[in-house]
Amino acid sequence: MPGPSGAAIVAALKASGVGFIAAVPDIWTSAGLLWPIAADDGFRLIRLCKEDEGISICSGLAYAGKRAVLLMQSTGLLDSMNALRAIAVEYEQPVCMLVGLLSKEPDRAPADSAQYGVRIVPGILEVMGIDYVVVEGPDDVGAIVPAIGAAYARSRPCAVLIGRQVEA
């Protein structure tokens, strides 16, 4: 099975009304997503020094009624735990994240990965009460629009876990 199409994910973001992308590069999503987003006038890209900045930037944009997504690797998610805890969960802000699960094996679910840094991600999100969907292949991209829509409707965070390298 091929990885998810970057063009299809971009289309899902646009269909969700996302106009802002806050990002730290991740090789899992670089060629298929971040470079195309950087070249797309339909998005305002905010390049971050560190991922937790993006939690707050997305929160600030949400106060303005603007939809945003934080694009990062799972290492960045792990580095942003306290900001996510306080700003997204406890303060009930619709912070939406696209998270590349670098090195996840294609034949395993994230929680079954041999990679410790990948394997712990679903459990952490569940403990924190953060809804997530897993995008492994082209057929999974359809989960993105409802996930983002629900996050903004409920004013709660969500994560889209990208389990395969995104196809350019």
């Binding site: 707050s56 930037i57 929160s59 600030g60 106060y63 303005a64 700003i87």
Partner: peptide, 13 residues
């Protein structure tokens, strides 16, 4: 440390 990042999001929004 997140105050200025919130400010950036608000300013862009």
């Amino acid at each position: 440390g997140q105050g200025s990042s919130h400010g950036l999001g608000l300013a862009l929004g």
